[in-house]
Design a protein around this nucleic acid. Structure first.
Length: 359
RNA sequence: GCUGCGGUAGUGUAGUGGUUAGCAUAGGGGACUGUGGAUCCCCUGGUCCGGGUUCAAUCCCCGGCCGCGGCC
């Protein structure tokens, strides 16, 4: 299922076989919560060389609802995306005040964001939803604590996440779908280690690192990534949930992570920031008013091949939303190109140089 | 020509005989990481000009200039 083709230090390059093709790792998934990456069409997304996206299963179960997905065939058929799709269980929404009502051992009581009614999500239900959606990779329901939570809450959530992972595994029936477990443990080293070990033992198709990128420092996060990965077996893909900045992605690849997802590149694009090989730039900066160069000279995305910084700035400045669309396309393409570079660099044993360039 | 009203950041506006002259927006910069297109944070920038009264004037008085209205 997962094969490592090359490695350098802890960094690995490999392939993950899914029912919608082989995905070369490391790879990055833009977030398409409701089935679309905000402001970007599927066609444009393909042009960014995105091979896999992540949708939110919980939200799909509410709207449009599973009946409609079943009628369409699968989530792929419904949204018109032929490549890889991960689905998130809804666990992350436990961090959101507008969703969460309460967490108990049995599951999570959620607020339906559309009509404010109460919904109860159990690990079993989260898996059934994802089985029905037919995504390539389903994620276990996890209990995500705030990064600053008390020691007892961190312990409770980590231990509960393991119990829920067992229930998810038992409930999983879709043979064409892979299932990943998720470790927790907040920022507690011992808890992280224990959680990762327990999740690893359950022998999922892949192991994910959860509860990170939610306000902790980079140093704290890196430490947790290192500890978690040390407990995960080598031959399973490792998925760090939530990381999406170029620097962080490269660092975490060097720590042995294979898969990433994040709303970050698309979000900062909507907030008028472009990623470049020289760091992020805010396109609104006055210095770009007469800058007729592309966002990044080395980038071969649609935006950079056709438009200048001055023009994109003009669009954004005059509140023409195509400006943010062009930035979104660029940022996603930029991250995809970076991850691809990382893959090649690992294959050629030059990954350390690439990390240095972006650190 | 006469008369009334008014002139406070680029713009739109509060307010005051002793204030760090407030707010909004624009301008300059920053944050954002299992999606808020939301939001937040920082910075720059102002009392039309000249006199007078007063310990002290952006405020009160006189003149000028400018704008809007009215009357010749």
């Amino acid at each position: 299922m997962f094969k490592i083709k090359a490695s350098q230090g802890s960094a690995r390059a490999g392939t993950l076989k899914t029912s919608h093709g082989k995905l070369k790792t490391p790879f990055f998934m833009p977030v398409a919560t409701k089935g679309a990456v905000k402001w970007v069409s599927n066609h444009e997304l393909e042009e960014t060389e995105t091979d896999c996206i992540i949708c939110n299963a919980y939200l799909f179960s509410i709207r449009p609802g599973l009946e409609i997905i079943k009628k369409a065939g699968s989530i792929h058929d419904f949204i018109g995306w032929k490549k890889g799709i991960f689905t998130d269980s809804g666990g992350f929404q436990t961090l959101s005040k507008q969703f969460l009502i309460e967490v108990s051992e049995d599951g999570v009581k959620f607020r339906n964001p559309f009509d404010k009614s109460e919904r109860f999500l159990t690990p079993e239900k989260a898996i059934q939803i994802q089985n029905t959606l037919g995504s390539d990779v389903a994620m276990c329901l996890d209990d995500v604590p705030l990064h600053k939570s008390t020691a007892s809450r961190a312990k409770e959530s980590a231990e509960r996440t393991t119990r829920w992972a067992e229930r998810c595994k038992k409930a999983h029936k879709n043979k064409k779908q892979l299932l990943f477990g998720i470790c927790q443990g907040a920022l507690n080293e011992k808890l992280r280690e224990k959680s990762a070990k327990e999740i690893d033992k359950l022998d999922f198709d892949g192991n994910a690192l959860g509860g990170l990128c939610i306000g902790e420092t980079v140093a704290e996060r890196n430490k947790m990534v290192k500890i978690s990965n040390s407990q995960f077996q080598e031959n399973k893909p490792r998925y760090l949930m939530g990381v999406g900045s170029p620097k962080d992605i490269l660092k975490c690849i060097s720590l042995g992570v294979d898969i990433f997802d994040s709303c970050f590149p698309a979000r900062i694009a909507r907030h008028r920031t472009a990623m470049t090989s020289k760091g992020n730039i805010n396109i609104l900066n006055a210095r770009f008013a007469k800058d007729f160069e592309p966002l990044d000279k080395e980038c071969d995305c649609f935006t950079c091949q056709n438009h200048s910084k001055a023009f994109i700035r003009h669009l954004v400045k005059t509140k023409e939303e195509n400006g943010q669309r062009l930035l979104s396309i660029h940022n996603i393409a930029f991250v995809q190109a970076l991850v691809k570079k990382a893959r090649h660099a690992i294959e050629e044993q030059k990954f350390d140089k690439l990390v240095k360039k972006y650190s």
